[in-house]
């Protein structure tokens, strides 16, 4: 029982990070039908920004965190503007290949600047773990879960209350119809990238607090996991990304606890395959059937 609860808590910890990153994939896919393969590398940008600002320049932690999130936002917006926007009306495969290219550019660029050797991620907080009877929950876990949940609730609130948020949903459903409403689709797409990459910045911070080494390929693994989470939940659907992230995290850590660490990825991919066999649109995909 203790093992189960511990692994469940670990699963929620890593799952909330996957969910945050998955939101970026799903929002971008929802609006321009592009799998942004460079999304994971935005995490790496965020992580290096923290390393540079704190370890090398000695900035205060709070400032460094804000700067690193802004760096992610900036990279996301610039990548969209210069790599994806010119291809918006070309076949989807062109943008997909471009996304892979951007990912390679970022990874190799980071290798050039920071060398391929991993750098330690600075310790951002040092708080005693919380003891709940026989259970010990680290402060990082609590913080990660809280930050992720708050981010997700704010995002849901944003897209359901604010004009810009509703416009994002409208553009992602039907870009032409949205433009007929007077919505500037370009601005909306920029905002989507900014928000998605901002969440990746938050994700980077939380991820590196759990796994504190930073290397140029840091974003690949969480990136691919988050992508799977987004597909599992139904790509393009925001609650799906969150659900997928948590399922993935919990499945992964339960496998690690009960079966074997090496099998955890196999189980994750296995779940994806089984879900897609029965629900090709993902768990929450196509929940509303549109009448024509």
């Amino acid at each position: 029982m203790i093992l189960f609860l511990n692994q469940l808590i670990n699963g929620l910890h890593v799952g909330s990070i996957y969910a945050l990153i998955a939101l970026g994939y799903t929002m971008v896919y929802g609006i321009i039908k592009l799998i942004n393969f460079a999304h994971g590398d935005i995490l790496m940008i965020g992580a290096y920004t923290i390393v540079v600002t704190i370890s090398f320049m000695g900035w205060p932690i709070a400032v460094a965190i804000i700067v690193s999130i802004l760096a992610c936002v900036l990279f996301g917006v610039v990548i969209e503007r210069f790599a994806y926007k010119p291809l918006r009306s070309s076949p989807k495969i062109s943008s997909l290949i471009t996304a892979i290219g951007v990912s390679m550019l970022l990874q190799n660029g980071a290798q050039l600047i920071f060398s391929p050797n991993p750098k330690p991620f600075p310790i951002l907080l040092n708080a005693p773990p919380l003891n709940l009877g026989p259970l010990q929950i680290s402060f990082t876990t609590i913080l990660t879960f809280a930050v992720a949940i708050i981010s997700m609730i704010s995002l849901q609130g944003f897209v359901s209350t604010f004009k810009m948020g509703k416009a994002m949903r409208a553009v992602s459903e039907d870009m032409d119809a949205a433009q007929l409403m007077g919505i500037n689709a370009n601005h909306t797409i920029t905002a989507t990238f900014a928000i998605g990459c901002g969440l990746a910045g938050v994700g980077a911070l939380l991820y590196c607090m759990a796994y504190p080494t930073v290397s140029p390929t840091l974003g690949s693994l969480p990136g691919i996991k988050a992508f799977i989470a987004a597909v599992l939940g139904g790509i393009g659907i925001m609650p799906g990304a969150m659900l997928g992230g948590f399922i993935l995290g919990i499945a992964e850590s339960l496998t690690k606890g009960y079966i074997s660490s090496q099998l955890s990825d196999a189980v994750v991919y296995g779940i994806l395959i089984i879900v897609l066999l029965f629900k090709p649109a993902g768990l929450l995909g196509k929940s509303v059937s549109e009448k024509v």
């Binding site: 004009k163 509703k166 949903r169 039907d174 119809a177 949205a178 007929l180 409403m181 509303v288």
Partner: peptide, 25 residues
């Protein structure tokens, strides 16, 4: 204003939200 062919309503938004979008500007 343009009512497009095939209605093109925002299916995953509520009726009220669709009308809000009409008043976007």
């Amino acid at each position: 204003a343009h009512v497009p062919e095939g209605r093109r309503v925002f299916g995953r938004m509520t009726v009220k939200e669709n009308l809000d979008m009409g008043a976007y500007t």
